[in-house]
Amino acid sequence: MSILIIMIPLTLLLLVGAGMAFFWAVDHDQFDDLQTPALLPLLDDTRTMTPGDESGEEPKP
């Protein structure tokens, strides 16, 4: 049982770390808009996804 004396402070330490990370995230706009950013990666840089089209030139359909 004496292992608890080390384990519990360790969890508390982790907890403080996680809390600090979360506070940082809140202060840096990470939670201000929860809908739009989720979609943005889907829209970002779609052109470079086409192989052999590194120039960013719009392909002519």
Binding site: A18, F22, V26, F31
Partner: peptide, 21 residues
């Protein structure tokens, strides 16, 4: 509004972590 929602989120997290532990 932004200040209010940020503060509320932080409080919620502290209470949630605390309650779990």
């Amino acid at each position: 509004r932004r200040r209010e929602s940020r503060a509320a989120l932080k409080r919620l997290l502290v209470a949630g972590f605390g309650a779990m532990q």
